[in-house]
Simulated assay, not measured.
Amino acid sequence: MLLYVTVGTNDLERAGAFYDAVLPTLGYRRQRQDETEIGYGADGDVRVRFWVVTPFNREPATYGNGVSIALAAETRGAVDAFHAAALAAGGADEGAPGLRPFHAHFYGAWVRDLDGNKIAAVCERPE
């Protein structure tokens, strides 16, 4: 359903270092970059699906209250690794890895990146 998502940043270099450390835990790698944005995609995917950008309008980037972007994880171990990598890279805990009541196999973790964007990793497979 979604083609791509973006999160805003006020420091592209710092945000890139954060996501370079975190997104490989879910199989995403930096695929594109210029002076205003960095794009991450899965190996073998023809599209960049996750973008970190400086706002087009040149105003400061802000995060949305109530906004959370959930990225699919292949395993619960990948969720754990995502959470640990985000915290090690300076992110803030918004929900430790674990099962949630949304359905029997919903295993997720939530973090805030260095700009306050709320990002989750979720595995919906039984393990």
Rank of each mutant, 00 (worst) to 15 (best):
A96Q: 09
S68I: 11
V79A: 00
A92Q: 15
A42N: 07
G91A: 06
G64V: 07
G44E: 04
A70N: 08
N65T: 15
Y107P: 01
P55D: 00
A85Y: 00
G91T: 07
A88P: 03
G44T: 06
A85T: 02
A104M: 14
D93K: 02
F50Y: 11
F50E: 02
F50A: 04
N65P: 09
G66V: 01
L87R: 02
V52H: 07
D43I: 14
I69E: 02
G41L: 03
A86F: 04
F102C: 04
V53T: 15
A42I: 14
A85R: 04
V79R: 01
G66F: 05
H105M: 11
G95A: 09
G90V: 15
G44N: 03
G91Q: 07
A81C: 03
P101T: 07
F50W: 00
F102G: 04
Y40K: 07
D45F: 05
D43V: 12
R76V: 09
V48Y: 06
N65H: 13
V79E: 02
F106V: 05
A85G: 01
R100A: 03
A61H: 05
G95H: 05
R100W: 00
L99H: 10
A70V: 15
T75I: 14
D43Y: 13
L87C: 06
A70Y: 14
A104C: 10
V46C: 10
V67G: 01
H103E: 13
R58D: 11
V46H: 08
F106S: 00
F106R: 00
F102W: 15
A89N: 11
P97M: 01
V79Y: 03
A88K: 04
D43Q: 07
E74I: 00
G64W: 03
W51I: 08
I69R: 05
N65Y: 13
P97N: 04
Y107H: 12
A88S: 07
A42V: 12
F56A: 13
L87I: 10
Y40D: 08
A88Q: 09
A42C: 09
F50H: 06
A70M: 13
A92V: 15
F102K: 11
Y107S: 12
F102E: 14
G108E: 14
V46I: 15
G91K: 08
I69D: 06
F50Q: 07
V67K: 00
L71S: 01
D93P: 03
A81E: 15
A72N: 12
